[in-house]
């Protein structure tokens, strides 16, 4: 970021990039999930996330005012312009790790969207109203699956515990805040991420306890955050090479 960008544009990118990158990751399972029902469920979840992305990035482009469409923002930015948290760009790992990441994100997404329905920005409130319904049934499924696998067989339990150990520190980044969050929360455009933390923590810990999983004591260990683009893992670039190659190789191609 060379100069201070419009905080609303930044906030919208954070919303849209989280769902875009997670949606892309989840779609990688298409045709590979352990059973057909899970394959369909993952593909449907990815589709919802990409639909939400379209609404967020379309509005981000309008707020920016440079004529960029949702597609331009998704396919023509480079890694340092992305504003997603690192949690969503991590490789899928095994099925358990994918579901654990989904659960940790889904609860945040539902809480965030529910609060966003009260945004002082009507367009944001409208998008959130639509997306919150989808996030609710995403949580229902990922929560049930986390419990089923955590409190499952010896092997499924071990895999879910491993997944939680890897992902728990990354989930903490959802509540790291900066001046964009402060300014937008002050203006009533978004909820302050810290205001969601207690509800997230309480709900997630209760479910993990039911899943017989132990929450690790760990904090987000990276020096920078994906939220302002100063920090991304090496994995994001690999996602972009896959996601963007067609628009890069054949600019302007349309479906």
């Amino acid at each position: 970021m060379t100069k201070a960008a419009d905080p609303k544009f930044e906030a919208l990118l954070r919303l849209g990039d989280n769902t875009l990158i997670l949606g892309h990751r989840v779609s990688e399972w298409c045709g590979h999930a352990p059973v057909l029902e899970e394959d369909i469920a993952l593909a449907n979840t990815a589709l919802d996330l990409l639909g939400q992305t379209n609404l967020w990035l379309e509005y981000a482009g309008e707020v920016e005012g440079k004529g960029r469409s949702a597609d331009d923002l998704a396919f023509l930015r480079d890694a340092w312009d992305f504003r997603n948290v690192l949690l969503v760009e991590l490789p899928n790992g095994d099925f358990g790790q994918t579901i654990m990441r989904q659960y940790l994100f889904d609860v945040f997404n539902r809480l965030n969207l529910t609060a966003l329905t009260q945004s002082t920005d009507q367009r944001i409130a409208d998008i959130a109203e639509k997306a919150a319904k989808e996030a609710s049934y995403h949580v229902e499924r990922s929560e049930g699956t986390v419990i089923g696998l955590g409190d499952g067989t010896e092997e499924s339990h071990r895999r879910m515990q491993d997944a939680l150990n890897i992902l728990w520190p990354y989930a903490q980044e959802l509540f790291i805040t900066d001046e964009v969050d402060d300014a937008m929360a002050e203006a009533g455009v978004i909820p302050h991420p810290k205001s969601l933390q207690d509800a997230w923590d309480t709900e997630v810990r209760a479910v993990l306890a039911e899943a017989t999983l132990e929450v690790p004591v760990a904090h987000f260990g990276h020096r920078g955050s994906g939220k302002d683009g100063k920090m991304h893992t090496e994995h994001l670039g690999h996602i972009l090479t896959q996601m963007q190659w067609l628009q890069r190789a054949y600019p302007g191609q349309a479906w």
Binding site: A46, L47, D48, Q52, N54, L55
Partner: peptide, 8 residues
Amino acid sequence: TPTYSGCP
């Protein structure tokens, strides 16, 4: 109005 935001 769309049914689901990602409905193709």
